[in-house]
Simulated assay, not measured.
Amino acid sequence: MYDRIVAMLFEIGVDTSQVTPQSTFRDLRMDSLSLTELAVMVSDDTGERAGHMTLDTTLAQAVQQLTHDVEPQESYSR
C-alpha cells in the first residue's frame, strides 16, 4: 500500500525523491486540494474512503489506517 500511495503522489506531481514513511503530507508541500485529489485516487484504487488523512498525517499512518480499514472482517461462530 505504501508504494501505491507514493506512486499516486508522483502522479499528482509531488516530488517523491525524498519521501519516507515518516513524511507528512505537509512535509511534501501538499495543500488541501492535492490531499483531496489523493484521497479520491486512494478511494478509487482501494474502494475505501480515505477521508481520515490530514496534512499532518504521515504516510505510515495513512497506510496503517487504510490497511486496517480494508482488512477482511473475521467471522466468529458460536
Results as ranks from 00 to 15, higher is better:
Gly51Gln: 08
Leu33Asp: 12
Ser43Ala: 11
Leu9Gly: 01
Ile5Val: 13
Gln18Asp: 12
Asp31Tyr: 11
Leu9Val: 10
Gly13Ala: 13
Gln18Asn: 15
His52Asn: 08
Gln73His: 14
Gly13Tyr: 09
Gln18His: 11
Leu59Tyr: 05
Ser32Trp: 00
Thr16Asn: 07
Ser77Arg: 15
Leu66Arg: 00
Ser17Glu: 04
Val42Gly: 03
Ser77Phe: 11
Gln64Asn: 15
Glu71Asn: 12
Asp45Tyr: 14
Glu37Pro: 00
Val63Tyr: 07
Gln73Lys: 11
Glu71Ile: 08
Ala7Lys: 03
Leu33Pro: 02
Gly47Met: 10
Gln61Glu: 15
Glu71Arg: 11
Leu28Glu: 04
Gln61Met: 07
Leu38Arg: 05
Glu37Asp: 04
Arg4Asp: 05
Asp3Thr: 08
Ala39Pro: 06
Thr46Asp: 06
Ser34Pro: 01
Gln22Leu: 13
Gln18Val: 04
Ser32Met: 00
Asp27Asn: 10
Ala62Gly: 10
Gln64Ala: 15
Val40Gly: 03
Leu35Tyr: 09
Arg49Thr: 15
Ser32Tyr: 00
Val63Gln: 08
Leu28Ala: 01
Thr46Ser: 11
Val14Thr: 10
Asp3Asn: 09
Arg29Glu: 12
Thr16Pro: 10
Asp44Pro: 05
Met30Glu: 02
Thr67Asp: 09
Gln22Val: 10
Tyr76Gly: 09
Ala7Cys: 03
Gln73Leu: 09
Thr16Ser: 08
Ala60His: 09
Met41Gln: 15
Arg78Val: 09
Ala50Tyr: 02
Thr67Ile: 14
Gly47Val: 14
Gln22Asn: 12
Leu59Pro: 01
Arg4Trp: 03
Met1Leu: 14
Ser23Asp: 05
Ser32Ala: 06
Phe25His: 04
Thr46Arg: 03
Leu33Tyr: 04
Gly47Arg: 03
Gln18Ser: 06
Gly13Cys: 15
Pro21Asn: 05
Met41Tyr: 11
Leu35Gln: 01
Met1His: 10
Thr16Ile: 12
Val40Trp: 09
Leu33Gly: 12
Glu48Cys: 10
Gln65Asp: 10
Ala7Pro: 01
Phe25Arg: 01
Gln22Trp: 11
Phe10Glu: 11
Gln65Tyr: 12
Tyr76Pro: 05
Thr24Val: 06
